[in-house]
């Protein structure tokens, strides 16, 4: 029997394997290239990019919680033009798909960032950040109102011929409403999900542990929540879902595929185990072989859910 196939397609985006590094956990890729062989990844999703450079939130910005990480970084970044001019040429040297995470404070800014990213050689897809909980304008505001979601996805769709992948916020009552809004606005796929809004308090000082106050919770603590939302979103739309939330092993990734994800992103674990991809990939191959499944594509959405 030949080795099972891990290749997947997200719209016109072809990935050698379905493992992506999540936005905000791998910088612009080049920062980790001396430690991680980027060719072991299907692709990387860059840190969120606005038109202008941003300095982000005050410190402290991170706090570890049980099986989780609470963060309020505030989308510190170099801005899209500096990324295209100074970072992308170095990133292009690596054999991996590049997905640019597009941010904006207005619909027009999203569209402009998307246009600049699309014009740059070596960008393979756009992820639209409508779900960052740690900025005062934009971000999650676009991802928690279905009409704003539709408008921003539609504007990026018009501005770019690349695959467009909105990243949904889990901080909504019914994620299927937002998944459908994205599909109707022309999205090629959906990233599911960003961090959960959280608050950790230092009881001695009675202050939040993060300078920003609230933050976004990630890591294995959120995995069952994210798997549930992936399952819900996958049943609501026909476009592919990219599952995200606390993946730390092949088994974790498999949960997302079975729930309906066509690809997955590894996030928080990039911080402590940047070389986790080879381990996850071999675990996926072992599983598919053991279950006589020829391709990871054949596993997607095969959950045996009680009726």
């Amino acid at each position: 029997m030949t080795a099972p196939s891990l290749g997947v397609e997200i719209g016109s985006l072809k990935l050698r394997n379905p493992l992506l590094a999540a936005s905000g956990t791998c910088g612009y890729g080049v920062e980790i290239a001396h430690v991680v062989d980027l060719a072991t990844l299907g692709g990387i999703v860059t840190k969120g990019l606005y038109m202008a450079a941003r300095d982000g939130c005050e410190a402290p910005r991170i706090a570890e919680t049980p099986a989780g990480l609470l963060n309020a970084i505030g989308l510190q970044g170099v801005g899209i033009r500096a990324f295209v001019d100074r970072v992308l040429p170095r990133l292009r040297e690596h054999d991996t798909a590049v997905i640019v995470n597009v941010c904006g404070e207005t619909v027009e800014e999203y569209a402009e960032v998307a246009r600049i990213a699309s014009d740059a050689p070596g960008v393979h897809a756009l992820e639209i950040n409508i779900s960052c909980p740690n900025v005062k304008t934009g971000g999650i505001a676009f991802g928690t109102d279905p009409l704003m979601t539709r408008d921003v996805v539609g504007a990026v769709r018009k501005a770019s011929a690349l695959p467009v992948i909105p990243k949904l916020s889990p901080n909504v009552t019914d994620i299927t409403v937002f998944a459908r809004a994205c599909e109707e606005a022309g999205a090629d796929a959906i990233s599911c999900v960003n961090t959960f809004l959280g608050l950790a308090i230092d009881v001695e000082t009675r202050k939040p542990r993060l300078a920003f106050g609230t933050g976004g919770l990630s890591g294995p603590a959120i995995r069952p929540l994210a798997v549930r939302m992936t399952w819900q979103a996958a049943r609501a739309v026909k476009i592919p879902i990219i599952g995200i939330g606390g993946i730390a092993s092949a088994s974790d990734a498999l949960e997302f595929f079975i729930a309906g994800a066509s690809a997955v992103q590894v996030g928080t674990m990039n911080f402590s185990r940047p070389n986790i991809y080879a381990e996850i990939e071999s675990g996926l191959v072992d599983y598919l072989t053991r279950h006589h499944i020829g391709s990871i594509r054949d596993l997607v959405g095969t959950i045996r859910y009680p009726r």
Binding site: G24, T25, C26, G27, E31, I32, V35, K47, G56, A59, P60, R61, I62, A63, L69, N71, I73, Q76, N270, F271, S272, P274
Partner: peptide, 16 residues
Amino acid sequence: DPWMGCGLGTCLGCVV
């Protein structure tokens, strides 16, 4: 010696 997450410059948790 700020709180540090990754050591690689990617989490941006340890800014000063």
